[in-house]
């Protein structure tokens, strides 16, 4: 009897709809759109800053529009999602051996969250909240 293996087609543009963990993965990947766009905003700010007071203040004005604020709220949510998904997998990517055993993953993750909190609070204090 001859073989006739059947290959199931995989929809190239919608494969991630099949599984909740694939959808969460795609959500994580899409955070890059907001990280990238915010980088663009910062770059523009630096450019305007180098062009003098008038150009820079026009940039600050543009940041103070409803659409800009909505964008930044969205960007903040996606950035936080990026941070959590990034820190949560650090024990997998960078396991640490201490003595005869591996540090528990929880310790590594918690240390990252603590570091995140410290730098965030530090920056907030510096800008005078």
């Amino acid at each position: 009897m001859s073989r006739k293996p059947y290959i199931r087609p995989i929809p190239k543009t919608s494969w991630y709809m099949r599984d909740g963990r694939y959808k969460r993965y795609m959500l994580r990947e899409v955070t890059c759109v907001f990280i990238g766009a915010y980088t663009g905003v910062l770059t523009m700010g630096l450019l305007r800053l180098s062009q003098g007071k008038e150009a820079y203040e026009a940039f600050l004005q543009a940041m103070n529009t409803p659409s800009a604020i909505v964008f930044h709220i969205l960007a903040l949510l996606f950035a936080v999602y990026h941070s959590t998904t990034w820190f949560n997998v650090t024990p997998q990517a960078m396991p640490i051996m201490k003595g005869d055993d591996f540090l528990p993953g929880k310790v590594i993750v918690t240390a990252h969250y603590a570091g995140w909190a410290v730098v965030s609070l530090f920056i907030l204090l510096v800008v005078g909240i």
Binding site: D19, R21, Y22, Y25, V89, P91, Q92, P95
Partner: peptide, 17 residues
């Protein structure tokens, strides 16, 4: 790094890591 491989692994091998 979808990570699904490690989640389904019945022996907790963690291939993604």
């Amino acid at each position: 790094f979808v990570g699904a491989c490690s989640e389904v692994c019945p022996k907790h091998v963690d291939p993604a890591g």
